[in-house]
Design a protein around this nucleic acid. Structure first.
Lengths: 235, 235
DNA sequence: TCAAAAGTGTTCGGACTACACCCATGA
DNA sequence: TCATGGGTGTAGTCCGAACACTTTTGA
C-alpha cells in the first residue's frame, strides 16, 4: 500500500459549510460535535475521508449524512492545513460549501447530530478554525454571487422577487433598491414569470418566478454583476 | 500520535503551478520528474507535506527548492482528491499557484530538476492530473486578473505599458486595444510614471512605470475590471 | 527618409444610480 | 378605509467600446 517510502501520512477531514435560505433569511447549519475534544460545542459538519473515496464524494456523503440530500450544489472552498488546527492530532481539512433550500428539505434533517440553523449574525463560537472557514466561505459566496447566479441554488422551485431580494440582502447584509434589483435580475432573462402569486407574505401577493434552466446553465459563468458596487460589500 | 482511531491516513502532496513573465510572454515552469513512475516526464514541481509543516509552508518550501525564491505571491488553488490520480498510491494534492518575474530570478533556478519555461500553448503532456491543474489555475488567474491587479506581481520593478499589455495578452490569449488599455490601467492610479524610458524594445522608447505600493495594497481587492467583456475570455 | 513601436482623444451607446408614486388586497 | 407590501418608470451620469492619426528615433 505504502509505495512512497519514508513519508508521513495524515488524516484528511472534510468540513461542510451549509448555507440555507428559508424564504426570509440566509442561515448556516451547525451541529453539536459528537467527538471529544470540544464535545457538544458547535461545529461544522465534518468527517474523515475514507480509502478509495474521492474528496468530492466524501463531501457528498457527509452532507447526505446530515441532511439526507443528494445532488446539492456544492463547491470546494480550499484546504486548511495549519498543523495545529486540530489540537488532538494533525488533520488537514478540505472545506466544501453547499447551498440548500431549507424549506424543501428540513424534514430530512437527521437529528443524530442535533443540527440547528443559525443566522450568520447569531453564529455561536465554533471549534478549531471553523469560524475562519465560515468567514472564508461567506466571502467566497459573496464574491461568486456578485457575478454569477449561484444564489438561485438556494431557492425553491417557485419563488418571488421579494424573496430573491431578501436572499441577496442576507448574503451581503445590505439593502438593495428594489426597482434596480428587479430590473437587473429580470434583464438576465433567467427568470420566467408565473401566473400565480404567493399570497402568504402580503395581501397583494407577489408573482412567482421559476428559473429558465437552459439559460441558467448557459449563463452561469457569465459576468452578470448582480451587486452594485461590490467593493463595498466584499471586504 | 494517532489519536483518532480507525481512520486511514493519506499522503498529502503539494503541486506548484509557477507562472512567469519575461517581459514578452507568459510562461509556465515545469520540471523533469525525478521519481518513478513517469520518471523524466514533464510535471509540475511538487513534494510531500512534512509533519508539523503547514500546507502553505510546504508550498513555500517547494517553490524555494526549485527557484530559490521566497516571499513570492502564492495562493492555494484547491485540493485534488481523486483516489486514482496518482497510480502508485493514493495521494491528495493541494495545488498552489505562484507568479514570478522570470528575468529577475532566472539565475537562481536550481537545475537539479531540469526546470524549463514553456509557453502555455507549447505545454507538453504532463503526468497524472497535472494538466487539469494547470487549466484550473489558468482559469483562476484569468478570473482574478480580470478584477484585481494580480498580474502586477509578475512584473519587474520598472516596466512599460506595452509590457503590461503583453502580459494581459498572454494571460487571456487575446489582443486588447492599447488606447483603452492604457486609459484603464492608468485610471486605477496604481502606476507612477518614471522619467526614463525603456529603449530596448523600440526606437522611440516606452516610459517606465512603477507600482504605487500603498495604493496597490489598498485597492488590491477592489473590482477594477481590467478586462473588457471578460465573458469572452474566461470560459 | 522610412519603418516600427509609442502615445494620445473623441464619439456613441448602454448600463448604473437615484429617486417616488400607484396598485391590490385583507383586515 | 387604511395599512401593508408589490410593482413599475425616468432622467442624468458615467463607463466601456470602437476607432486613426501623430510622434519619436534608430537604422
Amino acid at each position: 500500500m505504502n509505495k512512497y517510502p519514508n513519508q508521513t501520512r495524515f488524516l484528511i477531514a472534510i468540513d461542510c459549510i451549509i448555507f440555507g435560505f428559508d424564504g426570509e433569511n440566509l442561515k448556516l447549519l451547525l451541529i453539536h460535535r459528537a467527538l471529544v475534544p470540544e464535545k457538544n460545542k458547535w461545529s461544522l459538519m465534518g468527517g474523515f475521508v475514507q480509502p478509495d473515496e474521492s474528496t468530492d464524494a466524501a463531501a457528498g456523503r457527509i452532507l447526505k449524512q446530515l441532511t439526507g440530500l443528494e445532488g446539492v450544489y456544492m463547491d470546494q472552498l480550499r484546504a486548511f492545513g495549519n498543523p495545529s488546527r486540530d489540537p488532538i492530532e494533525r488533520v488537514v481539512s478540505i472545506v466544501y460549501s453547499a447551498l440548500i433550500d431549507i424549506r424543501k428539505y428540513k424534514e430530512q434533517l437527521s437529528d443524530e447530530y442535533q443540527p440547528e440553523w443559525f443566522l450568520l449574525k447569531d453564529m455561536p463560537q465554533l471549534i478549531f478554525d471553523h469560524e475562519e472557514m465560515v468567514r472564508a466561505a461567506l466571502k467566497d459566496l459573496r464574491y461568486k454571487a456578485a457575478l454569477h447566479p449561484v444564489l438561485f441554488e438556494l431557492l425553491p422551485e417557485k419563488f418571488t422577487l421579494p424573496q430573491l431580494q431578501a436572499l441577496y440582502t442576507g448574503v451581503y447584509d445590505a439593502e438593495f433598491d428594489k426597482r434596480n434589483f428587479s430590473r437587473k435580475v429580470l434583464s438576465t432573462g433567467l427568470l420566467i414569470k408565473q401566473k400565480e402569486k404567493d399570497k402568504e407574505n402580503s395581501k397583494k401577493g407577489a408573482f412567482y418566478y421559476v428559473i429558465d434552466k437552459s439559460k441558467y446553465k448557459d449563463k452561469f459563468h457569465s459576468f452578470l454583476n448582480f451587486v452594485p458596487n461590490p467593493d463595498n460589500f466584499l471586504f
